[in-house]
Structure formats: structure tokens, C-alpha cells
């Protein structure tokens, strides 16, 4: 199974009610699970050749999980608050406003619409405007302006309204 096929499965999952799928094929087991925010796990390269002996050990199976191999599990994960969070889709720097002297995109207590920009994450001079996936109230801003954030780290807590 190659990455293209895995991507196809992920795309299939995206448009469906199925939240989790496990496939075993030619000695490679793949487990794909939608994130709580509806996010889908990032596709990760599965090693092309896996020794059958290693396959017998569950810990060594190339399983795609929320924290893919090579990406350290974010420290913030353990302290993840209950409820809906907006998580960072990449490692980078968190900006609460479009410019250092501009008003923040959102602050605690604000109601955000679906698709509204809540912050910018920058990495390598690439700017990613993060949008809320749901309509809701910003109950907590989890990070400071200019702070480094990890992949998957919670940025905001949003309470659906």
C-alpha cells in the first residue's frame, strides 16, 4: 500500500460518517482515526518494506495515530482541556493579531462564526490563518502572542453556541 492509496482512504473517510478505520494488507496494518474536532490525521509515509518479524510486535506496526512517528507528542496534549479546542495544524509561532500593533483577531468571550480567522501560525515565513471550524464562544486563549506552538497543541477552547 502506498501513500497515494492511504490518502485516498483518508479522503473517503472525510466525506463519510465513519470516524475510524483499520486495514490490514500485505502485512501492513493501517489505523486511521478522525480527530475530535473533525480533523483527520495527517498522512504519514509508511515504511515501504517492513520485516515480517517486526510486524508481529504490535508496537512496531506502522500505525498512523494522532501522534505520528517522528513527531513528538505535544506536551500540551496531557493538559488538553475538555470541550472543543482549536489545535495548531503545524509547528510554528502563534500570532493573535495580523500585525504586532493591530487588534487581536479574537479575545476571550468573543463569539466566533464558522470559518472566522482566530489567529495566524507562522513557520518559515509561511503564514497560516487558522479558522474556527464551528460557531461558538471563545472561552479560553491557551497561548501567548509570539509563543512557539507544537503540532496539535490546543490554541483556543471554543464552546459551541
Amino acid at each position: 500500500m502506498n501513500t497515494k492509496e492511504i490518502k485516498e482512504i483518508i479522503d473517503l473517510l472525510k466525506g463519510s460518517d465513519v470516524s475510524e478505520i483499520e486495514i490490514e494488507h500485505d502485512g501492513v496494518k493501517i489505523h486511521i482515526k478522525k480527530g475530535s474536532s473533525g480533523a483527520i490525521i495527517t498522512p504519514v509515509m509508511v515504511p515501504q518494506a517492513v520485516a515480517p518479524a517486526a510486524m508481529a510486535q504490535p508496537g512496531h506496526s506502522p500505525i498512523i495515530t494522532q501522534a505520528p512517528a517522528g513527531v513528538p507528542a505535544p506536551a500540551a496534549e496531557a493538559a488538553k482541556p475538555a470541550g472543543n479546542t482549536i489545535n495548531s495544524p503545524m509547528v510554528g509561532t502563534f500570532y493573535k493579531a495580523p500585525a504586532p500593533d493591530a487588534a487581536p483577531f479574537v479575545k476571550e468571550g468573543d463569539i466566533v462564526k464558522e470559518g472566522q480567522t482566530v489567529c495566524v501560525i507562522e513557520a518559515m515565513k509561511l503564514m497560516n490563518e487558522i479558522k474556527s471550524e464551528i460557531k461558538g464562544k471563545v472561552t479560553k486563549v491557551m497561548v501567548e502572542n509570539g509563543q512557539a506552538v507544537d503540532f496539535g497543541q490546543a490554541l483556543f477552547v471554543i464552546e459551541p453556541v
Partner: peptide, 16 residues
Amino acid sequence: GILTEINAGPDLVRHM
């Protein structure tokens, strides 16, 4: 200089 902007969901880039 190069400044890149992306529009992306949590999992996939829509455009850049």
C-alpha cells in the same frame, strides 16, 4: 524575499 500564505483545513492545504 518570499512570503507564503496558505489557506488550509486541519489536515489539508486548500491553496497557497
